[in-house]
Design a protein around this nucleic acid. Structure first.
Lengths: 214, 214
DNA sequence: TAGATTGTTAATCGATTAACAATC
DNA sequence: TAGATTGTTAATCGATTAACAATC
């Protein structure tokens, strides 16, 4: 595994930018670009070149002075850092509109995230398939998470059930949670939770527009 | 309009926390809680009480020393700051899985965001309705945005069409954009863009899990 | 009054930006 | 070699946390 340098603390902000670098490099690579400078990469992403160089320097020296970065090589390195050089089995809990949309989101699999199971409580939905992935009853969660080596759970249940869902995922042995319920999840320290709070975006826009119009 | 104090700079981080405060106050209010301390509110949200007091102090004095905050009053004040004391007409562009999920997301309307129109290019979809909201051809965007006073646009089109969609929204007169396409949008300075980058979440989880398992 | 809790200032911490030597 | 661009250190900026006077 790609190690970051000893004694270098890596900020959350840096980790959140790595996927942007990775994605942009991928596009560049597909366009046939072989070498890219931090300046050019930064321009495409909307980040300063210093920021990019600083971020990368926490993990090693990936560029060539006076030249830039070899796109393919940097992509491979960042991919390795992000853990994209292996497969991750994931599951979705909650087949509402959002869960359904995510289950259909093809892009995950291209990055090595394979949807292995979907869970719900609605008898109408259980037994059905979304893109060849079966919907199971939540009561089967422990069995299936363990038998299918699922490591990451996606929570798209209503807010009032999110905490108990998180606990079931943890008990089933999951290590990472991607949470879409607008609520703070209490989980053990060794579980990594990323929450997407979709109610913030519109509120922030209305804040700025209110100020503007005055 | 609720003004923030002169000479106080309000950070983006503060603005992004206000919706959490608002939401949590709403829940507390529904539970019949009338007074809440920054300590208790912070505990529920996962933010320090100092943070909350600091954030709020940028806009005024909403609490009572030795007592706490009146839930209903603080909620009203934060709502006013966020521009939730009025209606906002919004539109969605792109009826893929995500656009469809967002069109069905009932929660927006409870905060005053009213979906007035949906746009797409697919003849199969045009003319249909999602929850009584009609799907129009993108070519009608300018007419409809203007006639229906739509101020905020939600972009859920594929990445390669996101930039041109943004430009069409801007030309139509929209002032705020909520962007779900994984790409940086170039828009005029007076347009407020919030991007939700759904590819970051899973990548960040896989990063941390990789480290953990080692 | 005594206890509790706010609002705010000062201290700390962390992240970004600037500058530049190293070197391809 | 001259020009370009990295990697890194130092400087700056911004955000969070600590501390505490004010006061309900």
């Amino acid at each position: 595994m790609k190690e970051n340098k000893e004694n270098v603390v890596i900020s959350k902000a840096t980790i959140d930018r790595l996927p942007l670098y990775y994605r942009t490099l991928k596009i560049s690579q597909e366009e046939g670009i072989e070498i890219i400078s931090s300046d050019e990469l930064g321009r495409k992403i909307g980040v300063t070149p210093e920021q990019i160089r600083k971020d990368l320097s926490a993990f090693g020296e990936f560029g060539k002075k006076g030249v830039g970065y070899y796109v393919r090589e940097l992509m491979r390195n960042i991919g390795e850092i992000l853990g994209l050089n292996r497969k991750w089995n994931i599951a979705i809990v909650g087949v509402g509109h959002l869960g359904w949309a995510l289950a259909n989101y093809a892009n995950f699999s291209s990055q090595g995230f394979q949807l292995q199971a979907i869970f719900d409580v609605d008898d109408e939905k259980i037994g059905r398939y979304i893109n060849e992935v079966q919907i199971f009853h939540i009561d089967e969660i422990k069995d299936i998470v363990q038998s299918r080596n699922i490591e990451i759970g996606i929570i798209t249940v209503p807010a009032q059930h999110a905490q108990s869902t998180a606990m079931r995922l943890v008990e089933a042995g999951i290590k990472g949670i991607w949470n879409f319920a607008p609520i703070k999840l209490d989980v053990p320290d060794n579980i990594h939770v990323v929450s997407e709070d979709l109610s913030v975006g519109l509120n922030s826009i209305s804040y700025y527009l209110s100020r503007q119009n005055n």
